[in-house]
Design a binder for these strands. Structure first.
Lengths: 226, 226
DNA sequence: GATTTTATTTGATCGAGGTCAAACCGCCTT
DNA sequence: AAGGCGGTTTGACCTCGATCAAATAAAATC
């Protein structure tokens, strides 16, 4: 892991992100004043469940996975964060202890924000507090969505739901490229890779074509009904 | 549903709750200034997924269930809130729309806090903002815990984990009473009632006795190993 | 206490998805 | 072109937990 400072491209990613875009520039500058950038190889462990954590992380590029470990060593993904996402924020309000393990999935660059400082800024700046609360809500909802999908949907239905989530409404014919390996998608959906593969082939009958990482949809309605 | 004002017992429940206990009295009073109390029969629907929601709810007594609906009408519990818990707060930061359905499980009394006002108070009072953020984190973590348990543990293991969560550490022998019907516990753990029943009988071999709502543990270690 | 009604348990069956092993494929290297 | 490698797919098998039906227990009502 090497550490650097923010360059102008990094700044652009930060400013365009969901968290920072609504903040006044002064607030953003105050937060970013002393951030450090770190680069990581794929599969680098960022922190472990329960460890002290005094940073919040922003993904400048790459991909990070949050997961928990079972007694037997099996892993369950909690969330996957692509470029532009902020994570690790909940430790800030829960005794500065990580609530899960974090690992890079690809070569990744992260901006590290001092959590003590961010918390202090949030106290002084209602806009920051508000942005944080929105972030927390979105993350809570991601987990709730996942939980509900796990409990209500079969594997092919979860995959259909994921595809539809990446397809603008009102369009029947659509194609897009997976932003990561199928491997990772399987983990995110709580499936074994084999099950994901079988789910895709089940969806073929509903007009879904898979070529490598490219997914093609020929009949949105059929997918929605699935 | 009848509506009333806060009585002194209600106030005691509020003041002793996790959310309010750390707040300065002035802040608490500001929040509680114009709350309304509503009483509900069991199975009363409080709000539906996606509906406009301009209150945050505090459970004065009884039990409330948050759940999502599948296309086929099946229900998946997201959370269960007993007396002393605050819920519905995430709608406040996500466009005032409920992120799930809510229903009472028993006869229940709720205090309704105007969410616009609470949000305004949070802007002015860092302590309130902080308490809200902690609440959001706890709720996010509840969902993440659930998700991880669903993905990593079998039914008996989830039940064991629930029991252990209600048993002080360092004690081998312990007994407690379920705070709700087995029915409800099954939903909370993402199980069919039959599966919960079978899980209990599987745990009998590890020193767990179930008599009605009373659970007895004779060997904490055995449970932890399970 | 007798009788309904509701909650829980038990039995039997079935399907979804995990696991292991092997085949396959694209991609990179040599 | 041949080989090697990692990711993906397919096949075979098996376990867990859902579901349906029936039996039992517990609570509520009369």
């Amino acid at each position: 892991m090497k550490t650097l400072r923010l360059n102008s491209n990094d700044r652009a990613v930060l400013l365009g992100s969901c968290f920072f875009e609504k903040l006044p520039l002064a607030a953003t500058n105050a937060i970013l004043d002393d951030v450090v950038v770190s680069t990581h190889e794929e599969h680098d462990i960022l922190f472990g469940h329960g460890e002290p954590l005094d940073h919040v992380f922003f993904v400048l590029s790459g991909l990070v996975r949050l997961y928990r470990l079972g007694k037997d060593g099996r892993e369950a993904d909690i969330a996957v964060f692509p470029k532009g996402e902020l994570f690790g924020e909940s430790a800030m309000f829960l005794g500065n202890r990580a609530t899960a393990n974090a690992q890079t999935i690809e070569t990744t660059m992260l901006a590290r924000i001092d959590s003590r400082k961010l918390r202090k800024l949030a106290e002084q700046t209602p806009e920051i507090a508000d942005a944080l609360m929105q972030l927390l809500c979105r993350h809570a909802q991601m987990a709730e969505d996942c939980l509900a999908e796990d409990r209500l949907l079969t594997a092919p239905q979860r995959v259909a739901s994921y595809i539809l989530g990446n397809c603008p409404d009102g369009i029947t014919n659509f194609s897009f490229r997976l932003p990561f390996q199928k491997n990772v998608l399987a983990g995110k959906l709580g499936l074994a890779p084999e099950a994901l593969s079988r789910a895709f082939s089940a969806l073929r009958r509903s007009g879904v074509t898979v070529k490598g990482r490219v997914i093609e949809i020929h009949d949105r309605q059929a997918l929605e009904r699935f």
